[in-house]
């Protein structure tokens, strides 16, 4: 009879990724590069918001973008065409999220000389990306008005890992039962530290507040 042996491991499967993410953050700190992980559901306006934001900041910061999607390169091409900043497309090969190792591989393909800010546009999904630390300095997410003000209750982990919640498409507020105050309260219940900034990426309203927040963040990261 074969002898059966049990080897105790008792280790979180996320432990290795968390270590990789911490290493990556430390390296980026050394290079003075701020990495922002931007998450949301598909269609919330991540790319449109990014284009507005980059066009406001590109004279003050050197910016590069990594677009992560399951397939296609429409987002990376659009960012490059409409902002002129360096932008690459990462394919996750069917996976619903990025982790620190995939983020590192993406960064290796970007010319990072002199870059102050890298924005990682994560796969559109409110569930899985929240589980994986990418090595970013901050996690931000976009919630758009048509999605509803109850999303912080339904996707608690996503809202609890984000430092910033951008509420997009405020121009359609009159047409939806979306209560901005209630949404703020729902975010606060999940994450009292999260900052909430309402914007409309289509018209540009509020995007300056977002730019101010990010500019202060990047400067703070470089000085600390």
């Amino acid at each position: 009879m074969d002898e059966v042996k049990v080897i105790e491991i008792k280790k979180s499967v996320f432990a290795e990724n968390e270590k990789d993410a911490a290493d990556l953050r430390r390296e980026l700190k050394g290079k003075g590069i701020y990495l922002l992980n931007l998450m949301s559901s598909p269609g919330s306006g991540k790319t449109t918001t990014l284009i507005r934001l980059i066009n406001l900041l590109k004279d003050r910061l050197r910016i590069a973008v990594m677009e992560a999607d399951i397939d296609s390169d429409v987002d990376a091409v659009k960012i490059r065409q409409e902002t002129g900043v360096e932008s690459i497309q990462l394919h996750t090969g069917g996976m619903c999220h990025l982790d620190a190792e995939m983020t590192r591989q993406g960064l290796d393909n970007l010319p990072l000389e002199g870059v102050d800010l890298v924005v990682l546009e994560n796969v559109g999904n409110l569930v899985c990306p929240a589980e994986f630390d990418t090595g970013a300095v901050r996690n931000a997410m976009i919630l758009s008005v048509p999605e509803g003000d109850d999303k912080p209750l339904k996707y608690p982990l996503m809202f609890s890992v984000c430092d910033l919640v951008v509420i997009n498409k405020t121009d359609v507020l009159p047409y939806f039962d979306f209560d901005l105050d209630k949404c703020r309260e729902n975010v606060r219940m999940r994450n009292p530290r999260a900052k909430v900034i309402p914007i409309c990426a289509r018209t540009g309203e509020g995007v300056e507040d977002l730019a101010d927040w990010l500019l202060a963040e990047v400067r703070d990261w470089k000085q600390k």
Binding site: V4, K5, V6, I7, E8, I9, K10, K11, S12, F14
Partner: peptide, 9 residues
Amino acid sequence: EVEIKEIIV
């Protein structure tokens, strides 16, 4: 938890 408790060999 999402952890590996043990492996049996």
